[in-house]
Design a protein around this nucleic acid. Sequence first.
DNA 1: AACCCTATCAACCGCCAACGG
DNA 2: GCCGTTGGCGGTTGATAGGGT
Length: 355
Amino acid sequence: MGRSPCCDESGLKKGPWTPEEDQKLVKYIQKNGHGSWRALPKLAGLSLSLSLSLSLSLSLHVKASSPIAHCLNRCGKSCRLRWTNYLRPDIKRGKFSPEEEQKILNLHSILGNKWSAIANHLSGRTDNEIKNFWNTHLKKKLIQMGIDPMTHRPRTDIFSSLPHLIALANLKELIETHTWEEQAMRLQTEAAQMAKLQYLQYLLQPQPPNSMAPNNLPNNNNIDQITYDNLLNSLSSMKDGQILSTSQFGNLDHESIPFDHMPDLQVPCQNQTPMMNKDMFGENSSPTSVWNIPSTASPSPPPQQQSGTTVPPFTETSSNNYMGDACSTLSYEAGPSSFWSDVLLEDHPLFHEIA
DNA sequence: AACCCTATCAACCGCCAACGG
DNA sequence: GCCGTTGGCGGTTGATAGGGT
């Protein structure tokens, strides 16, 4: 359906709310409830002007006859947001406690980015607040701990661990044997390599089934043959000061690049957000996510079949995967968002509630 | 003091599902 | 069943505060 026209109307105020606007909104909702958000802005302004007028016993007629001048000049959507995220009396403000933090982590591992669902389990916290807290604190924390914030699993892919490996393997040598100029050059080279590898991985992200793929490449990727070859050649030729030799990736061919799980790369990644929902475990299970793992790469630990659950096992499939005919893939269809959390959260009441 | 960078979070945007005429 | 309206949701943006240089 089309968008609501309410926010398209010109002349409506945007941006931070003033105390006066807050006051209007709170007074109206406390007295009347919100009812229709769309109608609320005008009603709220009118209601306040009426009550003020009555209390002053002045100019009732003038104010009531020109409600537009006194209405809340905001769209209903903005009013709703202000109320639910800020003005609602039951909102708990301030820092998240460690208990809340742990709860959010657990819930996120089960529910994914279902912020409103998570908020339902934390009284006094709004979905917006939790979302912000996740994005600014918890996500970074998990990444620093080497845990993929989307899957809640340890990040085992080579791309995520490369910086650490590089640092560990070369720190001593860098410090002892190179001048600062040499080190700067070296870091530049590494940065360029990493950028290209990340770009290559992005290009290898799957595309919608109707997109064209070059002949010798995995189906449905963002890349054309020339770009692909150039990138590989470019990477292979970076011998000087090389830390990331292509041999470390098994010749860096497209069969061995572990291009799963790259949340740090800020590109659209449609099918890498495995969300668990009720249907995934029930009879209405639908394959809302598929994890494709090249057979020649080390797969992530497969989800263990837990007793009493109906977690779908890994299955081998040859259709509609990254490799096309090049290799078969292991697809974990419609599974839980996190193997890791399956283990940790099996006894969580919410887990069974959902399952 | 001035500037820059980063973190934070309120608010907005756009999509979607539910609902009602 | 169709279509417009509405509320809700998740992703993103941008203003601002705070710390560092």
